[in-house]
Amino acid sequence: MRGTDETSGSLFSYVDLEARIPARHPLRKIRQVVNDALASLDAEFEALYTDFGRPSIAPERLIRASLLQILFSVRSERQLMEQMQYNLLFRWFVGLGIDDQVWVPTVFTKNRDRLLTTEMSRKVMAAILAHREVAPLLSDEHFSVDGTLVKAWASMKSFQPKAEGAPPEEDGPGDPHEHDTPAKDQPAQSEPETEPMPRATHQHRNAEVDFRGEKRSNATHVSTTDPEARLYKKSPGTGATLCFMGHALMENRCGLIVQGDLTQADGHAERRAALDMIHRHSPGSTRRLTLGADKGYDAAGFVADLRKACVTPHVAQKSRYSAIDGRTTRHKRYSQSIKHRKRIEEAFGWAKTVGGAAQTMYRGLERVRSRFILTMAANNLARLPRLLAT
């Protein structure tokens, strides 16, 4: 018998959201770990809020929603709020009932910016790693470190000469000091007009700009969109872009990220961040640690600092003038570290293709750093269902 195609709205629903989520859905394990981690941070959340005034969005729900945005590649908070209107899976994960009202996007972003600072993002990551099911997966002796560029939310057109009287800023080591290209034979494109045309007669358009022959550096120019972004290129043969530099410290057993950081881009940022992260993760460790890294970390000063901190530098050797000698390379664990360190690129690849870290949507070093660390925590969560199942 053929069924009828008729729509009749139900006045009441007697099916709970919990029953609508498949029993083997990966988000069930992720939600359990996140809820336990947030419960351990209850005292931290309590200290951030006063006992009077209008109630804000619960910090637990803010963090769950932010993690959900990263895990499902939702590009904006407005789109996230829109999907939470009709996506029962999103409502269940965040903790909203089927009849609960979704927040206004601007209210959500303002509450999130006040809560998710760099320190809070680090505490969330640490609480997840300290979970009773996650902690046994971690190695406490063998680590790897690397860095990646995070494109800033600023175009090259915003990289303008500094105002007269502003103190000059020296380029960081390894910065492209001057970026100039031989001028073309053809004349440059005209500059955008200073006075906008009336909308009634002309359509507003982002004018083209020709940068050929113009010398620009961090010492003489600054971005008007994000002044903390720096013009930098990590490898020869590539173009310099306005960016930040993200850093990650990975344990070598399961490849989980245990520390994250983000700094302004310069030639020494990776090595400085590596020392900060290893000291932050294992302060005053009595065990002999190992740290794998690529050739960019093969510098005499960095290797000496690691040895002083009782960390064996398993750094890939340069072809000439390497600071790593036979004392390190003759051991079997050196070759193992060189092999395992490449897995950190998987976390960076996931963060850029899924987590939205290829180009940040935020401005300012503090906001971009807190988001990058939370993205590294989300990368760990995405891998946990399979790791815990095995």
Rank of each mutant, 00 (worst) to 15 (best):
I324A: 02
A37K: 08
M120S: 04
S10D: 11
P192Y: 08
A135M: 14
R24C: 06
V94L: 06
R64F: 00
E133K: 09
G213Q: 02
R54Y: 04
A265I: 14
L256V: 15
A248K: 13
L41M: 11
T4H: 09
K29R: 11
E46G: 01
R343G: 05
L242G: 01
K352N: 10
D36K: 07
N379S: 14
A166S: 07
E44G: 04
F45M: 06
P22H: 04
P192S: 04
S76T: 13
D42Y: 00
R369T: 15
D305I: 02
T220H: 00
H331F: 03
D276C: 08
G237K: 09
A43W: 03
N380Y: 12
T312P: 02
G267D: 13
D42P: 01
V15E: 15
H204N: 03
R327W: 01
A274E: 15
R199E: 14
K295R: 15
Q79I: 15
A273K: 12
T390I: 11
E251Q: 11
S223R: 05
M81N: 01
R31I: 01
T117R: 05
H268A: 10
R132W: 07
H268F: 11
S223A: 03
T328D: 12
H281Y: 14
P313H: 05
M1Y: 07
D294M: 09
L374I: 12
A274R: 13
F108H: 03
T312M: 12
P192H: 09
Y321G: 00
A37I: 14
E214Q: 11
G260W: 15
F244N: 02
A200T: 11
R54S: 03
R54L: 06
